[in-house]
Write a protein that binds this DNA or RNA. Structure first.
Lengths: 222, 222
DNA sequence: TTAAAACCTACGGATTTCCGTAAGGTATTG
DNA sequence: CAATACCTTACGGAAATCCGTAGGTTTTAA
């Protein structure tokens, strides 16, 4: 049973909802919440140093930017940083992110114990996830379990998202290429940028980059 | 003071968070929650018929689709339907939607009493919104208050909107020109199309047509 | 281990967009 | 009426895109 739990979630409404469920249904006796990944990281490290470590981390993936400058920008980075430091705390990811690539990496490489999709029954699944985790088993949201093959037709990588948002910001393909080169990303050549945009255009049946970005907006991808 | 409140929100985590705040801070003595707009609509109608109407409606805007077929697909439709029926219940919209056009319509046409943006301090703002509403005043999330309304000053003609949506549909400037010529619209020359796009680009500070269409989408113009 | 597939990169030509200039037409105003 | 402003259209060169080809490298699979 998990006694000491830390929750990392930027939206206060969701954080409060999670807290309530944990308190009423799981029976932890110490719940700490944090709206910033940086804070959460420090708290986790500190707790280990003080020999009163957390038993469980529940974290969101995406965090809104605000006035505070953030070193750790999202839940994925937080998890990666913890694992790099050899911290093997059990982790539940609670996010709206449904792309298999992302989820797969978290489960298989970062050894996250549970992946719960936010949604109508997100909290029910979260509760189930924690119980499953108590038995040392891995939990995956039911929405993801069954339809694993259908949706896998086409999934956007972070690269594609980055590409699309750069386009939406008005950068030319050349500028994007140079920017990617600066950041050491791969691929970064103008030709590859073109190719990738082309692939996306085919995928979304867009005649040109304008329509592509427009449909990406419609689908909420960017 | 609002005594009987209905909350419409698809995500259980957020719904629970709202409930908790209402219960602890507002002191309503009857809170009903609903994860579907259709259900909420029926409950509101029924309560009126039974002469025990709700004092306040708190609703999200976007709702995820699931197996249930939904007649009312989102909070905006729900509000519209209620107002059409002459139901003047005070309404708080609690949503992540930050497009001015949408918000403006809800406030000015549908006479929604408060618009609260989900976010880090969403619940704090929600609480404040309800208190403000109690005094009969209108509440708008602080993130929305200050930021520039410059972009809204500029009134777009139907021509511009048509132009923008044609661009978003993937038509080239040449195609648009020919199409306008066919429809007998004026202006229709390629040169004029270019000029107009240029003006729009300046107006919206867009570097190219892609960014232009992207911001038009953001603003909800198309 | 090797062959095939997939991927990144480069290049060139056709097309489209971008941007400045300019001519003609119409409405406004003094 | 003339001067002016504004709008529509046309044109041309520069820049960016679209699209096909092709060579080299990495990954995958037999």
């Amino acid at each position: 049973m998990f006694k000491k739990i830390i929750i990392v979630e930027d939206f206060d409404s969701i954080g409060l909802g999670i807290s309530a469920v944990i308190q009423n249904r799981i029976g932890a006796n110490e719940i700490v919440t944090s709206q910033y990944c940086d804070d959460a990281y420090l708290k986790i490290k500190r707790a280990i140093q003080d020999s009163i470590p957390f038993d469980l981390l529940i974290t969101d993936l995406s965090f809104e930017k605000d006035h505070r400058e953030a070193k750790i920008k999202g839940g994925k980075e937080l998890v990666e940083k913890l694992r790099q430091q050899g911290i093997s705390i059990p982790i539940v990811v609670y996010s709206i992110e449904d792309r298999r690539v992302v989820i797969k990496e978290l489960l298989e490489i970062q050894k996250v114990g549970a992946y719960v999709l936010k949604g109508r029954n997100g909290l029910k699944n979260l509760e189930q996830a924690i119980l499953t985790l108590t038995n040392g088993e891995v939990f995956l949201s039911p929405e993801l379990e069954n339809s694993s093959e259908k949706k896998e037709l086409f999934e956007l990588e972070d690269f594609d998202i980055s590409l699309l948002s750069n386009l939406a910001k008005g950068f030319s393909q050349n500028e994007i290429s140079k920017d990617f080169k600066l950041k050491g990303m791969s691929p970064s050549s103008l030709s590859s940028i073109e190719k990738r945009i082309n692939r996306l255009k085919e995928e979304f049946e867009a005649k040109n980059a304008i329509q592509l970005v427009a449909t990406a907006k419609d689908l909420g991808l960017i």
